[in-house]
Amino acid sequence: TGYYDVLGVKPDASDNELKKAYRKMALKFHPDKNPDGAEQFKQISQAYEVLSDEKKRQIYDQ
């Protein structure tokens, strides 16, 4: 599964769309709200870390 799929956004998503999707998913799977969501929360955080950084995103998109 790709990072875009993890966040539920298209590859041409804007920074604002990425942030909005990340916040929505992070709230849904945060371990405090969803004890079984810890692994998914890590994936969401990693996806956002890469896609929100312009240089990392360019490398990922290659």
Rank of each mutant, 00 (worst) to 15 (best):
K28L: 15
I59D: 12
A38R: 09
K42P: 07
S45L: 15
M25S: 03
K10F: 07
Y3S: 01
K20L: 11
L27W: 10
G2P: 08
Q40P: 02
Y4T: 00
G2R: 12
A47F: 02
K56S: 11
D53G: 06
K20E: 15
R23L: 15
A21D: 01
P31D: 11
V9I: 10
K10E: 08
Y48F: 10
K24R: 12
I44E: 02
N34P: 02
K33T: 15
K28N: 10
K42C: 11
R57Y: 04
V6F: 04
K33R: 13
L51P: 01
K28F: 08
I44C: 04
D36V: 06
N34D: 10
D53F: 04
Q62H: 11
L27D: 15
G2H: 13
A21S: 01
A47L: 02
K55A: 11
A26M: 13
N16F: 14
G2Y: 15
M25T: 04
D12L: 05
K56L: 13
E39S: 08
D32I: 08
I59A: 12
S14D: 11
D53M: 03
Q40W: 11
A38E: 09
T1R: 13
F29Q: 02
F41E: 02
L7M: 08
K33P: 02
G2A: 11
Q58T: 09
R57T: 03
K42T: 08
K56E: 04
E49K: 11
S14E: 04
K55W: 08
Q58M: 13
A13V: 10
Q46F: 09
K42N: 09
K19C: 14
A47E: 02
K10R: 13
R23Y: 12
E49T: 07
Q58I: 10
F41K: 01
D32N: 12
Q43I: 14
P11F: 10
E49W: 12
N34K: 04
R57P: 03
Q43V: 12
R23N: 13
I59R: 09
K56I: 03
E39L: 09
D12F: 05
Y22A: 02
A38W: 11
D36N: 12
E17D: 12
T1W: 15
Y22F: 13
L18E: 00
F41W: 15
P35Y: 04
Q40D: 09
P11Y: 08
F29V: 05
M25Q: 10
A21K: 01
E39W: 08
A47R: 00
V9N: 00
N16V: 12
L7I: 01
Y3R: 01
G37C: 14
E17I: 04
K55M: 10
D5M: 08
S52A: 11
E54V: 14
V9Q: 00
E54W: 14
K24M: 10
K56P: 03
H30K: 07
D5S: 09
L7A: 00
I59T: 11
K19F: 12
Q62M: 12
